[in-house]
Design a protein around this nucleic acid. Structure first.
Lengths: 253, 253
DNA sequence: GCGCAAATCAAACGTTCGTTTGAATCCTAA
DNA sequence: TTAGGATTCAAACGAACGTTTGATTTGCGC
């Protein structure tokens, strides 16, 4: 039986190579033979050490999410302890949740940008076993941060906060995945540059955090803005505040 | 040789089924046999009518993007003509770009939510041929809307606008894909409910457009906020305005 | 009714997939 | 030194993949 002492060489080299190949080619686009040949191990090594390809995929994430989840909980605990019962600021919650993530990208020992891009891509992966696995891994953390956001934005309906949490996850995972039409059209190759550069995470962080915070605190959509003064209200009025503002003629109805 | 008269039954039924299965299982997760058996056509029909699986995937998108691209250009033309040389408002640009997309989700004849979810998932698909195909299909439209945003936000650095365009695409595609950790944890099945409900697009639109607009007009990140009064400045100051605000102790450095 | 191209069909092509097997090594504790 | 479990290895497994073939059927102009 395996899993008693485990050889550090083969075991970890498989994980590292699989992480990088899953990032570059996706789960279904990466074969066992690609992994084992690049890791210079025998084809049977994956099944010996991990049991199956699916289990390998889960282990690739498990070793990273272990740190990420704990870090996120520890930071939230610290913030809430320091607040002594008072609600946190939205920026504090976002910094703890997304800042922790982006910090992984700066440290190759935590997976670096390779893992971050893999995570971004995998969050929209259709495979069932991946989604149920993620749901289990994320359940506790999401629950904690949901309620932290509820308390941080008491005037915004909770359902609205959930939508915006959803949108923020999208911005982040998409930006991390780095496979964007804009990048291709604008014309630089994200695969090599961003995947290996730890400074990419810092650059991204400076750009995306203000975007997320502003989105989270956006004015409420028109049909809901009636009652509730809402701490999310923006004083700026240089532009129409919400959807359905200017109707433009659609063709091909 | 094919492509002279084309039988409407088989040809279109393959496209419709492929669209739905690619949406549900992804490109690599959908086999020719799944498509042909569900469409009740012979296995060879796909290669006869489209040439290959890749060409089928491209055609699934081409017939939808044809409408989407033209509609987006027409709307932008109309807006700019009405503005008579003046810059558009950011909300107008977003409404034309993303509103047009969401309108597809309300109309099953344009693909409905099935196509929107497929589009959302595919934008982060790693396969090379998909990305290069999208780049070609989107090139003109992205270029036009890029410059419309540049003009709409003259005080925001163009590089910053591109980043935020990127983030907005992420929010949208992620929200459309509908495979979210939040949804799974919060616990409802997106596959059946959202995929067939045209009203889902309208609900999503009301939620996401204010989020996107606020993000687009967020205050600039700290190291860049020095000069430029920026039409993106928000009057609200109930919270720290940008990233790197409160530093929180990270562990496991 | 005939002729011919378009379309459909069953069957098989060669390849690659994830996984399993059983023997050959390696390493360590007795 | 020697057992014995841990690990590696070459080889093969059946299944599923996308694609191709060649015969058959269909539909329409003549």
């Amino acid at each position: 039986m395996p899993d008693q002492k485990h050889c550090p060489d083969t075991h970890d080299r498989i994980l590292d190579v699989a992480e990088r190949l899953f990032m570059a080619n996706g789960y279904e686009g990466t074969s066992m033979r690609m992994i084992t040949s690049e890791a210079e191990v025998n084809l049977a090594a994956v099944n010996y050490h991990f049991g199956s390809k699916e289990a390998l995929m889960r282990e690739v994430f498990r070793r990273r999410l272990l740190w990420l989840n704990r870090e996120r909980i520890v930071l939230l605990d610290a913030l809430e302890a320091a607040a002594a019962g008072a609600p946190l600021k939205p920026s504090q919650v976002l910094e703890a949740f997304f800042g922790t993530l982006l910090r992984m990208g700066e440290d190759p020992a935590l997976g670096g940008m390779v893992f971050l891009r893999l995570l971004g891509r995998t969050l929209t992966e259709p495979a069932d076993f991946i989604r149920t696995f993620f749901a289990g891994e994320y359940a506790e953390v999401v629950e904690r941060y949901k309620h932290a956001l509820f308390r941080a934005l008491p005037d915004v309906p909770q359902e609205e906060i959930l939508w915006r949490f959803h949108f923020m996850l999208g911005s982040m995972s998409y930006a991390l995945a780095g496979t964007d039409v804009l990048e291709i059209v604008t014309g630089y190759e994200p695969g090599d540059a961003m995947a290996t550069d730890p400074a990419a995470a810092r650059r991204l962080s400076a750009r995306v955090m203000p975007f997320l915070l502003a989105g989270l605190r956006a004015p409420l959509p028109a049909p809901l803005a009636s009652l509730s003064s809402s701490s999310a209200a923006s004083g700026d009025s240089c532009d129409a505040p919400s959807g359905a503002s200017s109707r433009v003629t659609p063709s091909h109805a």
